[in-house]
């Protein structure tokens, strides 16, 4: 029982970081205004953050740089598809197709 309770306390503590970070500026409202320059610089946050999430997944294998791996090849194909087509499902089909073909079909990575 006490172990179960401890787990819920742990989960609540981890969860507190969700609201602390996401609410850090939204919840205080007017009282937490950033300088205008910084606010304008933050327009680049989505692109930088998305790339920061994608890059390690496609460039690294087991923590090491790996320029020739199926995930990078799939990411290149997804990028090309996004540039040439407006179909929202095609990137998923093409990307998973290339990844599974290279990793299962050819036994890479």
């Amino acid at each position: 029982m006490s172990e179960g309770l401890w787990l819920w306390i742990t989960l609540a503590a981890i969860g507190s970081t969700t609201i602390l970070t996401r609410g850090s500026f939204i919840i205080p409202g007017e009282r937490a205004r950033l300088p205008a320059t910084l606010q304008r610089a933050l327009r680049y946050a989505p692109a930088a953050a998305l790339a920061a999430l994608v890059a390690p997944d496609v460039l690294l294998a087991d923590g090491e740089l790996s320029p020739f791996n199926p995930r990078l090849a799939a990411a290149v194909v997804v990028t090309l598809v996004c540039l040439r087509s407006r179909n929202p499902w095609l990137p998923f089909i093409a990307g998973m197709g290339v990844l599974l073909l290279l990793s299962k079909g050819f036994g890479l990575g």
Binding site: T21, R22, P28, A32, L42, A45, P46
Partner: peptide
């Protein structure tokens, strides 16, 4: 545990700051 979760969530501070004026 809390420190790790905080670091993994830290990017939301940037998002929160960017969106705050709209809310």
């Amino acid at each position: 545990l809390v420190l790790t979760a905080l670091v993994l969530n830290l990017r939301f501070v940037i998002f929160s700051a960017a969106l705050a004026p709209a809310f």
